[in-house]
């Protein structure tokens, strides 16, 4: 937890760089104003943070840069409401508040020695990116890495630089798809769940990690089940409206579990135990 005395008090960070990922998604690379804090700050892939624009409010985003690359913390923001609109108005040199790390992380220790299948859609690649980069930085710990990623149109694909790099690597299989034909697009066309069925990865010794729009997740889960993936080998990360980030305020609960504190990462086996999750 960021601040052991007052969990509500954000730490001040300065924006070093802003990347326009897509027409409505920007990534912010930030560093703590206190240079010492940059050295002591620790987190695990999958954990989230609350970003503050003072006067407007807070919103939750995954830290999508991996803990193996601590030059800055990166958050990607899709413009949707009041806070995200205010974030989009910020530029390098501007300050914001951060409360992080919050929540749990991907069970990356248990994934060691396994084949890893990432299935992402749109901005849903953000949490997967953290884990992908973390695994690439610890490549020997994991077997085959396959990434199926899709978006509505090619301009909507996030992290284009990363995608190019992954595509070039021999130790990663990247399969890109977009929802419909698009001028100049020569890769796959079709929804992510359909492409998943085409690829038909073997469930043998494999962990599937998925994140994307709710409707995509719904069909991906169905298709993974058809492909005979076991519930405990399917991992997803959830989002919900959050305020406190410490499991009290009551918004993000699924039964007795709070997405902000007990999540956001859950296995499908865990989710099936929670009312209203699936």
């Amino acid at each position: 937890m960021a601040n052991t005395i007052n969990p509500y008090l954000p730490e001040i960070v300065t924006i070093k760089n802003v990347i326009e990922e897509t027409p409505n998604i920007k990534s912010f690379q930030v560093v703590f104003n206190d240079p010492e804090r940059m050295k002591t700050f620790t987190y695990e892939p999958g954990q989230v943070g609350q970003l503050s624009v003072f006067g407007v409010g807070e919103s939750t985003f995954v830290i999508n840069s991996p803990p193996t690359r601590m030059d800055y913390l990166q958050f990607s923001v899709m413009k949707a409401g009041e806070v995200t609109a205010a974030l989009h108005d910020l530029y390098p040199g501007d300050q914001m508040g951060v409360r992080a790390p919050l929540g749990n992380a991907f069970p990356y220790e248990q994934m060691k020695g396994k084949k890893i299948l990432f299935i992402g859609g749109g901005i849903g690649l953000a949490p997967l990116r953290t884990l992908i980069l973390f695994m690439l930085d610890n490549r020997a710990d994991y077997k085959d890495i396959t990434i199926i990623y899709g978006s509505r149109t090619p301009p909507d694909l996030c992290y284009k630089e990363d995608l190019n790099e992954w595509e070039a690597r021999k130790d990663v299989e990247l399969i890109l798809t977009v929802d419909a034909e698009y001028p100049g697009w020569k890769k796959k066309v079709g929804f992510v769940p359909t492409v998943l069925n085409e690829v038909a990865p073997s469930p043998e010794d494999t962990i599937a990690i998925t994140c994307g729009p709710p409707i995509m997740i719904k069909f991906v889960l169905q298709n993974l089940a058809q492909l005979k993936f076991k519930d405990e080998n399917i991992i997803t990360t959830l989002e919900a409206r959050m305020k406190c980030g410490i499991g009290i305020c009551g918004r993000c609960n699924l039964g007795s579990k709070y997405i902000c504190k007990d999540g956001p990462v859950f296995s499908l086996a865990q989710l099936k135990e929670l009312p209203g999750a699936i």
Binding site: F54, G55, G57, K243, I248, C249, G250
Partner: peptide
């Protein structure tokens, strides 16, 4: 015990408040 957190701002200063929800 559920609550809301909102920022209420006037000119160059403001408050982050916690209110019943």
């Amino acid at each position: 015990y559920c609550f809301n957190i909102t920022d209420e701002q006037t000119s160059d200063k403001g408050e982050r408040i916690r209110t019943w929800d």
